[in-house]
């Protein structure tokens, strides 16, 4: 049993630069961002990046930072890039200390909405605690029947058989269907605006990326039955023939 007491797991957490917390424009920006995808941000874990930030040498400072994030439904869980004196203060405030920054800024910055990289949206980016950021893509080789829902949490979904009318594919990443797509496909379900949908035959009831959607009758009729990819361009769902 002892072997099961400690298990490893990978999580995606957001990293907020500590300096940003002192910027008044940041709170406003953060509030807007959370307002756009409230479910995604609800109780979401946050790591405070202390790189190049002065201060934060007292427990108090970390408790205040935690309080500020809590107002936006976020949960401060730890710090990274902390100096030795910051480490003891953070530990005193009950925060975990993550290894010095080994994560690269993700190419998948959460920029729900505007498409312009604002100070805040550049500051908040999903980063992984370890280097492998996402779980492997979920692969489905059997037909997806009416009434079935498949969710690829935190990753891409690849389906190599037909997706029936009345079936639903949901992925936090991209969705690929190498057959007829007749049901619904919702990519970027947690707000990733970079997610795309690819299918070799578009007959979908509904397609959606990061909450924007098109229903069957809004899909361009000339693209019905074709191989297409669907992306969010300037906040518009755009269907392109392959």
């Amino acid at each position: 049993m002892a072997g099961n007491l400690v298990q490893g797991a990978l999580f995606t957490v957001m990293v907020v630069r500590a300096g940003m917390l002192r910027d008044t424009a940041f709170e406003e920006e953060l509030q807007q961002q959370v307002g756009r995808s409230p479910r995604f941000f609800l109780n979401a874990p946050v790591v405070l990046d202390l790189k190049d930030s002065e201060g934060f040498t007292t427990e108090e400072a970390f408790l205040d930072a935690g309080e500020a994030l809590r107002r936006h439904t976020l949960a401060l869980v730890g710090v990274q890039n902390a100096l030795p004196e910051q480490i003891s203060a953070a530990a005193g405030a009950g925060l975990a200390v993550f290894a010095p920054n080994s994560t690269q800024p993700s190419r998948r910055a959460v920029q729900a909405g505007t498409g312009q990289a604002t100070a805040a949206s550049a500051a908040i980016m999903p980063a992984a605690i370890t280097q492998s950021a996402r779980p492997p893509a979920r692969l489905v080789t059997e037909p997806v029947r009416s009434g079935t829902q498949i969710y690829a949490r935190g990753t891409d979904l690849i389906v190599t058989a037909a997706v029936s009318a009345g079936a639903e594919l949901v992925a936090d990443g991209h969705i690929h269907v190498y057959a007829a797509l007749r049901g619904r496909a919702l990519a970027g379900a947690s707000g990733d605006v970079e997610a795309r949908i690819f299918c070799s035959r578009l007959e979908a009831e509904l397609v959606s990326i990061a909450g924007r959607y098109l229903v069957s009758e809004q899909l361009p009729p000339e693209q019905r039955g074709s191989a297409v990819h669907i992306a969010l361009v300037d906040d518009q769902l755009t269907v392109t023939k392959n």
């Binding site: 037909p143 997806v144 029947r145 009416s146 009434g147 009318a165 009345g166």
Partner: peptide, 13 residues
């Protein structure tokens, strides 16, 4: 046909 598709899914799961 759609209802049959649903039932085939239930059989498979």
């Amino acid at each position: 046909v759609r209802d049959s598709d649903r039932i085939i899914g239930i059989l498979a799961s």
